[in-house]
Design a protein around this nucleic acid. Structure first.
Lengths: 238, 238
DNA sequence: CGAAACATTGAACCGCATCAATCAAAGTGG
DNA sequence: CCACTTTGATTGATGCGGTTCAATGTTTCG
């Protein structure tokens, strides 16, 4: 079954049973925090664990839940008519999977955990309702959707660039997400094959780019991590 | 100036001054119709003409208006850091330009008329407000955004296919928009160069694909029009 | 009509996919 | 703990599709 087991809140109080978001340290960075903020009747948000390889949802499932990754990572993907897997996005900490569930009645992608992950489940109906109930949440929601549009447009642009640029652009994007100018380590929980399917490149090409960038002294590969040695050079590429 | 001259309504009544949408024959197909429907205080919607080559808005302009194309055509585009024009979409009848104005405070693209066009201007603030005021409009809006996501995902997929598929997919998309299974004529108001910048192909490649498809008896080029001769073959390609 | 913009066709080159082999790491079971 | 398997990453060789450069044809519009 795709559903994760609920985890009891670490800090129970009168709110916690309904929504762990009220106590969550990152409620300022997460859609769940915005969902419960200033609500006199906070919706039921449930935390859960999900094992590597398990699915959060599949194409066609009724889209009743918006998932937010608390730790770990997931990918969303579809299987196209010719049987090829098409990776549409990766979700790391504080990212939402199934945002289109708010736009539509059923999921249009599959979502699977790339490693053991903690996730939060937000009822889609509550999200939709809160869009009308709160102008602040509406704007937050529209802003999230706007950022997703930006990401997609950026991908479209990158899809027309050379392989080096695509990878460099992806790495810069990951780096910028940690809004910390001094950050230089990037977590890459996905396989080279997944990254290739995301960027529209063959696995081998992705691999070649990484070694090329390493040889040029731009970055250093360390298993599932990647250390950016020369951020300026990387930015110039992307 | 980017703004078009207002046109007096053809059928004035007590509503028409504020919103020509109330009388509009296509209010059922257009976001403007949904905006004024069931509203006891319909917002001011203005119609206007815009000449070929004139801009509706530019990157960085305050995004206070959502444009809907009534007739004619527009394209949205950005100029990327390397000076290349990147076409992000075409808007034909009933399509909206500047949907991101509802998500954000300023336009993130430029929009220009491809030929003499009639457009309707919806105040973005009214659109945003109506999202909270009416659950029906909220769902209509979210559905529009969802379709836009679908289009972008489809483009991303196509960007990784062979040139023939990209063009075929685009043509099928245009065909399907005329929700009429027997339709076989497609209006192509954009230049081959624009189409290439939209599909991520060189102008010459687009041209070659069109002649190739014509030689195979799939379609027939007629200036800015294109007649689909063998719809099945086209669908099989895309 | 003539000029300018756009479309088409041809030839050569290049980057990435593909096929194939090797290498490295992570489990798994005795 | 070590063979053995499995999975993922890397590197090499080859071919094709699309870009690029260049020339010619066609449409549009003053």
């Amino acid at each position: 079954m795709p559903l994760a087991n609920p985890i009891p809140s670490q800090h129970p109080d009168r709110h916690a049973a309904a929504s762990p978001c009220l106590d969550c340290a990152r409620r300022g960075h997460c859609l769940g925090g915005a969902l419960v903020a200033d609500s006199d009747n906070p919706p039921t948000v449930v935390r859960g664990v999900i094992a590597k390889g398990e699915h959060l949802f599949r194409v066609g499932d009724p889209a009743d839940t918006l998932y937010v990754v608390r730790s770990g990572a997931t990918k969303t993907y579809v299987v196209s008519s010719d049987g090829e897997e098409e990776v549409r996005g990766f979700q790391l900490a504080n990212d939402a999977a199934g945002l289109e569930s708010v736009c539509d009645g059923e999921y249009r992608t599959n979502a699977v955990a790339l490693n053991r992950s903690w996730i939060c489940k937000l009822p889609a109906s509550a999200v939709r309702e809160r869009v009308t109930a709160s102008a602040a949440f509406r704007d937050r929601m529209l802003s999230s959707l706007g950022r997703e549009f930006e990401r997609l447009h950026g991908m479209l642009h990158r899809d027309r660039c050379a392989a080096d640029r695509r990878v460099a652009g992806f790495l810069m994007q990951q780096l910028n997400k940690q809004n910390d100018d001094t950050a230089h380590d990037i977590e890459l929980p996905m396989s080279r094959a997944d990254l290739g399917r995301y960027l529209g490149l063959a696995t081998e090409t992705v691999s070649r780019v990484f070694t090329r960038l390493q040889n040029r002294g731009v970055l250093k590969n360390r298993g599932s991590q990647c250390r950016i040695v020369n951020r300026v050079a990387l930015e110039a590429l992307s």
